[in-house]
């Protein structure tokens, strides 16, 4: 017996793809920004932090609207990007962008805390051994922050997987294209006889969230254990 209908499978697969790609795409930027915030004192740092955390504090619908204004077909950036063949509005790529924006603060915050925890004296030692900034980052800072980076990725993934408000505002509800699992649940709640589907997808959401959190604990724990005992 198939536990989900084809439409429900489609929503689940889309959600996994959107959440996974959103984390992958935003990770390099998050690593760079976390390093800047952790290691460099620059003017306007507080302003950058305030902007970074906006998606956490703004109503998601507002974030979605802002994305539409910026990246819509006639938006400030959207029109220019469309010229390069890159379109976000009402496409699954837009769902990835919305999920990335919503998960980004959690990703940066986790990684930054991990970077803050790296003993600066080790970086200084690496520097005296001839390692430039990039090598120190790649060989000392990142490996010693693996646990925080993994935790950040999982948090951002979970946030992206559950993303609803910004996504529906920015890319709407198009089956197979932008109807992610939360949007599918919302739609099923509003159609007669949709309750069994709501229940099935709710269980799926619970399982995915639980597995993701467990994976973070296992992966983070393994990386930590290797560092300490290897």
């Amino acid at each position: 017996m198939n536990p989900l209908t084809p439409d429900e499978w489609q929503a689940l697969a889309l959600s996994l793809r959107v959440a996974g790609l959103s984390v992958l795409a935003s990770l390099p930027f998050a690593l760079g920004l976390a390093w800047l915030l952790s290691r460099v004192r620059f003017p306007g740092r507080l302003l950058v932090e305030a902007v970074l955390f906006l998606p956490l504090t703004l109503p998601p619908v507002v974030t979605g609207y802002a994305l539409l204004v910026l990246f819509g077909r006639h938006g400030a950036l959207g029109e220019w990007l469309a010229g390069l063949g890159i379109v976000f509005a009402f496409r699954w790529t837009g769902a990835v962008l919305a999920a990335a924006v919503m998960g980004f603060p959690l990703l940066v915050l986790s990684i930054r805390v991990a970077f803050d925890g790296v003993d600066r004296r080790l970086e200084r030692a690496a520097e005296t051994l001839g390692a430039g900034a990039w090598r120190r980052f790649a060989t000392i800072v990142v490996p010693l922050s693996v646990r925080g980076i993994v935790a950040g990725c999982v948090l951002a993934f979970a946030r992206a997987f559950g993303e609803f408000g910004a996504t529906i505002s920015f890319v709407s509800n198009i089956p197979g294209e932008t109807r992610t699992l939360p949007i599918a649940i919302y739609e099923l709640m509003n159609v007669p006889g949709g309750l069994p589907g709501v229940q099935r997808l709710t269980v799926v959401a619970l399982v995915v969230a639980f597995v993701a959190t467990l994976a973070a604990a296992v992966l983070g724990g393994t990386a930590w254990g290797r560092r300490r005992d290897d």
Partner: peptide, 27 residues
């Protein structure tokens, strides 16, 4: 610092905890 070509042995060693001795030596 990275261009000065000095070898600094710190009082507390400061070995890289995530690298084995072999990789520390070759760093």
């Amino acid at each position: 610092v990275s261009m000065r070509d000095v070898g600094y042995v710190f009082q507390d060693g400061r070995l890289f905890p995530h690298l084995r001795v072999h990789a520390n030596l070759l760093y």
